[in-house]
Design a protein around this nucleic acid. Structure first.
Length: 398
RNA sequence: GGGCGGUUACCCAAGUGGCCAAAGGGGACUGACUGUAAAUCAGUUGGCAAAAGCCUUCGGAGGUUCGAAUCCUUCACCGCCCA
């Protein structure tokens, strides 16, 4: 179970045992295991952090089990109230279904399209009656919830803990009941929802409790805090190849091992080899990171795209040359440098433009341009900072 | 229902009449350096302006004052505690 992370050796052992047993049973019954993982449809795009559980699902698929990609259309109504600045996005059915399709498309970079069934948990959650809810709730004590670390911390800090946040676990637990699942995969933040809520409710409904497979959490591009779109440290699955490559390269060295472990297709043996080469400094960390970036781009784009992204990266950041493709801007006569920067959308305001020019951040064909106010000198490649390039041309040309 | 507190720039957060376009941190941006868009170091971080300066911003509206993020009135939203 590469990448599994229970934070508790006993639990890990228990889960491994149960999984083994369940596999034997299922084989006797001649059925595949029912495996699922849920995804919140409120954010529009998935990122590398989501792919960890998908990769695990994929392994089950490859072994012939029945995998469900569950879209949390019902649970998303509760959501995580820690995003207070966001409006309660009440998504229409059309919007959620649209998101779900987009999701699935993104997920198929990892999952096998033919073998994945997509379900929406509003199908069963929104039909629950009050009496059902009471039954669900009666399987738990307030104490169990107060014990949870994230509630506990907030409680102690005097921060609010909303009643409906407790529903989230119940709803997620009921998913397992509704689908009568054998295995649920999730991140370690889902430990309670999977192990406590899911298993308890299944027992309450006379089902065999599911086995939880708890995966490690991927840190974001800062290398420390978990990857999340709202923290802005994410690498979207849909990022274009050059951007994806660059984002991986911007990871701190310390994050490389966990990325190899959780995101790549490498086997445990290969991961170990990489870790050792880093620990013993037998390979240059930059080369290792480039290998990582290449692998990740290959997963979501292609080998070809990865090679191209790497060439581009070398060219722009190592050799400090202009990229081959860049946007173009048609120069109009009499425009100052500031006008051009503004019109080509390289800066957000003129003040910002002045500042950057003062800081020697603007170059034309490699020469620093010192005066924001001067008339634009000649056509060529205009560069702002290290990453922004525009080819400035005469108006009618091309 | 009662008591108390809060709403400040991209985010967190200080500021309780003038020295406030507003401390500090994070993030972001620029430069130097290099192994890279990492790390480190330096700088920048509301808008307009060449500049002096002007304008907009401290939840909304109104008021007091020569002068308000700071005081008053009112509205909205949020939170904690007690019941």
């Amino acid at each position: 179970m590469q990448g599994a992370e229970y934070g508790d050796a006993d639990l890990k052992k228990a889960m491994a045992n149960e999984l083994r047993q369940r596999l034997v049973e299922a084989q006797k019954e001649g059925r595949p295991l029912r495996v699922y993982c849920g995804y919140d449809p409120r954010t529009s795009d998935l990122h590398l952090g989501h792919t960890i559980t998908m990769r695990k699902l994929r392994q089950f698929q490859d072994l012939g089990h029945a995998v469900t990609f569950l879209v949390g259309t019902g649970t998303s109504m509760v959501g995580d109230p820690s995003d207070k600045d966001k409006l309660r996005a009440v998504l229409t059915k059309e919007e959620t279904e649209h998101n779900a399709r987009t999701y699935a498309e993104q997920a198929y970079h990892i999952l096998d399209r033919e073998k994945t069934s997509i379900r929406f948990n509003h199908e069963w959650l929104l039909d629950l009656k009050l009496a059902d809810l009471i039954k669900l709730a009666s399987a738990f004590t307030i104490q169990q919830f107060i014990q949870r670390e994230n509630f506990k911390l907030r409680w102690e800090k005097g921060d609010p803990v909303y009643l409906h946040e407790t529903f989230y676990a119940l709803m997620q637990g009921y998913d397992a009941v509704a689908m009568n699942t054998d295995v649920q995969v999730g991140g370690s933040d889902q430990l309670f929802n999977i192990i406590t809520a899911g298993r308890k409710l299944q027992e309450a409904y006379g089902q065999r409790p599911q086995i939880g497979i708890i995966m490690g959490i991927l840190p974001g591009t800062d290398g420390v805090v978990r990857m999340s779109k709202s923290l802005g440290n994410h690498i979207p699955i849909l990022a274009e190849s050059g951007d994806m490559y660059g984002k991986v390269m911007s990871l701190p060295d310390s994050a490389m091992p966990i990325y190899f472990k959780l995101v790549t297709r490498y086997t445990p043996v290969q991961v170990k080899a990489v870790e050792e080469s880093l620990a013993q400094a037998t390979r240059h960390p930059r080369d290792v990171k480039m290998e990582l970036a290449r692998e990740i781009v290959s997963i979501f784009h292609s080998e070809q795209a990865a090679v191209e992204a790497e060439e581009q990266f070398k060219r722009v950041f190592q050799a400090r040359q202009a990229p081959e493709d860049m946007p173009e801007y048609a120069l109009q006569s009499g425009q100052t440098l500031l006008d051009v920067l503004m019109a080509a959308k390289l800066i957000a305001s003129k003040s910002e433009g002045r500042r950057i020019v003062e800081q020697k951040g603007v170059r034309l064909d490699g020469e620093v341009l010192p005066d924001a106010q001067a008339v634009f000198p000649h056509i060529g490649v205009l560069q702002v900072g290290k990453r922004k390039f525009v080819r400035v041309k005469i108006k009618d040309e091309g």
